[in-house]
């Protein structure tokens, strides 16, 4: 559906315009991957500058650290992704665990009004901007990282790309983009009122990244 002839008329006008030959830009190659250590450090400083919390859970089990976070943040209900983290079971004094395993239409009321925190697994991260990547909506529903007031994200620091260019070069996105690829750099925020930064505008007001050695 389009306005009648709009497509043809617009394209015809553009084609009637004088042609120009401007070569594709030669873009500098993605920077050489620094060491894992340096990339992690860069990522961490970047995302912390965006007001996220990063907790290194590699020396302990991430479940232990998660329990501490839930206690500290008084998380009463925690929503998990559809199939991942199957071995995460409720623990004494811990939050009620809910699983995002049906279409959102059946979860909406709960998701918007009854869930304190969403738990997701990042598909990677970008060092130079401090950015988490969620690249598979099948595994990680889009709204799980968006709707609950707290977003807890597990990240394996071995999957940190040096830059966005690096990520584009190393992933199969160019051949097959996921229906939704999401980059996250910190909690939701706005400076729309008198340039004063406020967190938790429409998305999570807190973002907690747990560094794990694998889930």
């Amino acid at each position: 559906m389009s306005a009648p002839l709009a497509r043809q008329r617009i394209l015809a006008r553009l084609r009637a315009a004088p042609p120009q030959d401007i070569p594709a830009p030669t873009l500098p190659l993605a920077p050489m991957p620094a060491s894992d250590e340096i990339r992690l450090d860069q990522f961490r400083r970047g995302i912390e500058a965006f007001h996220a919390e990063v907790i290194d859970a590699r020396q302990r089990t991430w479940q232990t650290v998660l329990a501490e976070v839930c206690a500290a943040k008084r998380i009463g209900t925690l929503m998990l992704p559809p199939a991942d983290l199957a071995d995460l079971n409720p623990w004494p004094g811990g939050p009620r665990l809910s699983r995002f395993d049906r279409p959102i239409e059946m979860h909406k009321a709960e998701l918007f009004d009854a869930i304190d925190a969403g738990l997701t697994i990042a598909d990677g991260a970008i060092a130079d901007t401090g950015t988490l990547i969620q690249a598979d909506p099948r595994r990680m529903p889009r709204t799980l990282s968006l709707v609950p007031p707290i977003h807890i994200c597990l990240l394996d620091p071995r999957c940190i790309y040096p830059s966005l260019q690096g990520a584009l070069a190393a992933t199969p996105w160019k051949q097959a983009m996921p229906s939704n690829l999401i980059f996250i750099s910190g909690p939701s925020k706005t400076a729309d009122i008198q340039q004063t930064m406020a967190y938790g505008a429409h998305g999570p007001r807190e973002l907690i990244v747990l560094l794990t050695a694998g889930t």
Binding site: F50, L181, G203
Partner: peptide, 12 residues
């Protein structure tokens, strides 16, 4: 350096 969200939409 980056906005909180960068959203790449390639389909429903």
């Amino acid at each position: 350096a980056a906005t909180t969200y960068f959203n790449w939409i390639s389909g429903p």
